[in-house]
Simulated scan of single mutants.
Amino acid sequence: MSFQYNESSYNEQELSEINVTPFIDVMLVLLIIFMVTVPISTVTIPLDLPVAKAKVEPNIEKPIVLSLNQEKELYLGNERLLGKDLGSEIDKLTKSKRDTVIFFQIDKRVPYEELMDVMNQLRSAGYFKIGLVGLETDRE
């Protein structure tokens, strides 16, 4: 079998087709990146919360969550507060809006005295709207 190339029969034409193979490769790489990073970004603080039986209402804006775990470590969102002033850290998040609701979740093994200490810090900072967070149903 032989192939002959004839210069006179060759027409130069532009390719009008789009090569989608690189596009598909890039999209698959992005899909893999998102599949890996989403579970990492949803890491939460391990707490054993008590059960609440109240009806859940929808959130309008991003809530400010304050957490106190079994080791008595205080977290604002997912950041641990290490010797920082609780009032000034919440002021940064709320832009000093004192009527913002602070959601406070506490491990059920934390002594009541520790809970009241944090609530007193919130009250002295001017935050009086504090919502206690619990589980919706009892875990079996």
Results as ranks from 00 to 15, higher is better:
Ser2Tyr: 09
Ser2Trp: 14
Phe3Trp: 10
Gln4Pro: 00
Tyr5Ile: 13
Tyr5Cys: 00
Asn6Glu: 07
Ser8Met: 02
Ser9Pro: 01
Ser9Phe: 10
Glu12Asn: 06
Glu12Cys: 01
Gln13Glu: 09
Gln13Thr: 10
Gln13Phe: 11
Gln13Cys: 03
Glu14Met: 11
Leu15Pro: 01
Leu15Gly: 02
Asn19Pro: 02
Asn19Leu: 11
Val20Tyr: 15
Thr21Tyr: 11
Thr21Ala: 14
Pro22Ser: 09
Asp25Ile: 11
Asp25His: 05
Asp25Val: 15
Asp25Met: 13
Val26Gly: 05
Val29His: 01
Val29Phe: 12
Ile33His: 04
Ile33Lys: 01
Pro39Ala: 04
Pro39Leu: 06
Ser41Arg: 14
Thr42Asn: 10
Val43Thr: 14
Pro46Phe: 06
Leu47Ile: 09
Leu47Thr: 04
Leu47His: 03
Leu47Lys: 02
Asp48Cys: 04
Pro50Ile: 13
Pro50Leu: 12
Val51Pro: 04
Ala52His: 13
Ala54Asn: 15
Glu57Met: 11
Ile60Leu: 15
Lys62Asn: 10
Ile64His: 10
Val65Ile: 11
Leu66Cys: 08
Ser67Arg: 12
Leu68Pro: 03
Leu68Glu: 05
Gln70Pro: 01
Glu71Val: 07
Glu71Ile: 04
Glu73Pro: 00
Leu74Glu: 04
Tyr75Lys: 00
Tyr75Val: 00
Leu76Phe: 11
Gly77Pro: 04
Glu79Ser: 09
Arg80Ala: 06
Leu82Tyr: 07
Leu82Glu: 15
Glu89Trp: 05
Ile90Tyr: 03
Lys92Ser: 08
Thr94Arg: 09
Lys95Met: 09
Lys95Pro: 05
Arg98Lys: 15
Asp99Lys: 08
Val101Leu: 12
Gln105Arg: 12
Asp107Glu: 14
Lys108Pro: 00
Val110Gly: 01
Tyr112His: 03
Tyr112Asn: 08
Glu114Pro: 00
Leu115Pro: 00
Met116Thr: 12
Met119His: 01
Asn120Thr: 09
Arg123Gly: 02
Arg123Leu: 07
Arg123Asp: 06
Ser124Asn: 13
Gly126Lys: 06
Lys129Cys: 00
Ile130Lys: 07
Ile130Pro: 01
Gly131Trp: 06
Gly134Arg: 13
Gly134Pro: 12
Leu135Ser: 05
Thr137Tyr: 07
